[in-house]
Structure formats: structure tokens, C-alpha cells
């Protein structure tokens, strides 16, 4: 896997109004990597993700994706960036008025030249990958929370984007589905070379999939750890990081 940075953030400061969440973050995400963003609740992980996909504008600094500066106001470059990324939102964000199949088919019919029958076949392949084959004609409201999550991943996968952003993919899933999801992420990463940017809390999932993690810290508003989670677990010089990976409560320190 090449070590070329596919996403890079330089001096990224984010926040809302007077509230500053993170100050001058610098990090690179390499092509073909599974990159996990960690941090305690409320430290701004999801916000960082929304900055990386251009939904929020940074207060300062810049983000580059695939060599292009992320600028939502520049229609041309933003569209080209969007064609390379897929996003799965925390709550699934499936369109409630469409069936599952229609949800997944929407980007495929819109952005490719595939014909009707081929689209249907591809949709069922996508759903098969996330273990939802046979649910094409179900409405999102008829699915459980975990199924909605997996369907949302299938929709994010629809166009086989180079970079996939997943916001808490395994939260609310049973351990088996969660492990299957990890396998799915690893397989997609190997077979298609997809770069993953994942926000998650699941320790087991982190140790299974993550090649590199960054940990955000609310107090210092900065990155306090960057590297392989297996090494950080024991070798980090930051007590909070060791505590996080070893799952120790605050008072036992």
C-alpha cells in the first residue's frame, strides 16, 4: 500500500461561534488505510468527520482530499471530491419514503450508465455484502436499528468510493453483526483498496480493524495519540490513552 496521503488536514481548527472544539489539528490519512478517530464522548469526533466531508466549514486551516482542497463553495472541485467519497451517518439517514433497494439504487442510477436489470442485480450484491439480501422491498421503518446501519453502509458503498467515512458503524449492533461488519470493512479494504475513516468506540473493533488511530482530547483541544492501537495500548506515555485502551474508569487512577 502506498504511503501517499489521500486526506490531509493542516492547522484545522473547528468549533461553533465562540466554542472552539479542536485547535490546529495536523494529520494525514494514507491511501488504503483503515483510520480510526477516537476520543471521549463529546470531544468532537463526529464534528471532525463532518468537517472532513465538507458539511461544516473549518474556522481555520485547510483539508485536502486526493490532492484537491476541500472547499464546499467551489462546486467543481467539491463535486469531484464527493464522487470519491461515501458517508455512512450515525442514524443511518436512509430515505424513509423509499424502500431499501431504492435507497441503494438511487446513487447507482444517478451516476452510472447501468440499465434497470443490472442495477437491481448490483443492488442485491451490495445488500448481500452487508447481509441484507432479500430485504430489497422493505421500508427503513420496518428494519431494526442494526439493519438500518448495515443498509446505510450498503448505500455508502453503492458507487464503490475510494474513501468511506463511517460514523459509529457498530454502535447498537450485536457482537456477531459487529464482528461481521469488521470483516466486511477488512475485506473491502483488501479487495477494493478502499480507504476507511471510522469513528467508533468499540475497543474490540478498533483492535481488529484499525491500522492507525488518532485520539482527540477535549481538554487540550488537540490530538494526544497517533499510531497503531496495539502499541499505544501499553506504550503510550499519555495515561488517558492507556486508560482508554485498557477500559479503566476514571476513579481508579
Amino acid at each position: 500500500m502506498s504511503q501517499e496521503a489521500v486526506i490531509s488536514a493542516r492547522g484545522l481548527t473547528m468549533g461553533f461561534g465562540d466554542l472552539i472544539l479542536m485547535e490546529s489539528l495536523n494529520f494525514d490519512i494514507h491511501s488504503g488505510e483503515i483510520f480510526v478517530i477516537l476520543g471521549g464522548s463529546g470531544c468532537g469526533k463526529s464534528t471532525l468527520l463532518k468537517h472532513l466531508v465538507g458539511l461544516y466549514k473549518p474556522m481555520a486551516g485547510k483539508i485536502t482530499i486526493a490532492g484537491m482542497v476541500l472547499d464546499p463553495d467551489n462546486d467543481d472541485s467539491f463535486k469531484r471530491i464527493l464522487s470519491r467519497i461515501g458517508v455512512m451517518y450515525q442514524g443511518g439517514a436512509l430515505f424513509s419514503s423509499m424502500t431499501l433497494g431504492e435507497n441503494v439504487a438511487l446513487p447507482i442510477t444517478e451516476y452510472s450508465n447501468l440499465k434497470g436489470a443490472a442495477v437491481e442485480e448490483l443492488v442485491s450484491l451490495k445488500l448481500r455484502q452487508v447481509g441484507l439480501e432479500g430485504f430489497e422491498h422493505h421500508l427503513p421503518e420496518e428494519l431494526s436499528g442494526g439493519m438500518k446501519k448495515r443498509a446505510a453502509i450498503a448505500r455508502a458503498l453503492a458507487l464503490n468510493p475510494e474513501i468511506l467515512f463511517l460514523d459509529e458503524p457498530s454502535a447498537g449492533l450485536d457482537p456477531i453483526s459487529s464482528a461481521e461488519l469488521d470483516t466486511l470493512i477488512l475485506r473491502l479494504n483488501r479487495t477494493l483498496g478502499t480507504t476507511f475513516v471510522v469513528v467508533t468506540h468499540e475497543l474490540s473493533s478498533i483492535f481488529t480493524i484499525a491500522e492507525r488511530v488518532i485520539m482527540l482530547d477535549k481538554e487540550t483541544k488537540s490530538i494526544i495519540a497517533d499510531g497503531d492501537p496495539h502499541e499505544l495500548k501499553n506504550a503510550s506515555d499519555h495515561p488517558y490513552v492507556r486508560q482508554f485502551f485498557n477500559r479503566q474508569p476514571e476513579m481508579e487512577r
Binding site: T99, S124, E133, G134, F135, E136, H137
Partner: peptide, 8 residues
């Protein structure tokens, strides 16, 4: 392929 279930 598993059948897509009954169409609405």
C-alpha cells in the same frame, strides 16, 4: 441469489 421478497 436469494429472492428479493415480494414486491410491494
Amino acid at each position: 441469489p436469494r429472492s428479493a421478497g415480494a414486491k410491494r
